[in-house]
Simulated assay, not measured.
Amino acid sequence: MMKNFEDYFSQFDSEIKKKLETIRTEIKNEIPEGEECIKYLMPTFVFQGKNMIHFAAFTNHIGLYPGPEAISFYEQELSNYKTSKGAIQIPLDEDIPLDLIKKIVRHGKERILKTTKTTNK
Rank of each mutant, 00 (worst) to 15 (best):
L100H: 00
D95K: 10
Y8T: 10
R24G: 02
N80G: 11
V46N: 09
K109S: 02
F5N: 14
T25F: 12
P91Q: 12
S84A: 15
Y74P: 04
I96T: 13
Q89Y: 04
F47C: 04
K50P: 03
G49Q: 07
L20P: 05
G34S: 06
A87R: 08
L64R: 05
I112G: 05
H61A: 09
D13R: 01
E94G: 00
R111D: 12
K39Q: 15
H107C: 04
I71D: 04
T59L: 12
I62A: 02
K121H: 07
K28E: 15
E6W: 01
L20F: 08
T44D: 05
N29L: 14
I112Y: 03
P97S: 09
R106V: 00
I90T: 03
Y8F: 11
Y8S: 09
M1S: 14
P97E: 07
D95R: 05
I27P: 06
Q89N: 11
G67T: 12
E6R: 10
L98Y: 01
L92C: 09
G67Y: 06
G108F: 00
F55H: 11
M52S: 06
T119Q: 14
P43H: 12
P97G: 07
P43G: 05
F9V: 13
H54R: 08
N29G: 02
I31H: 11
N4E: 07
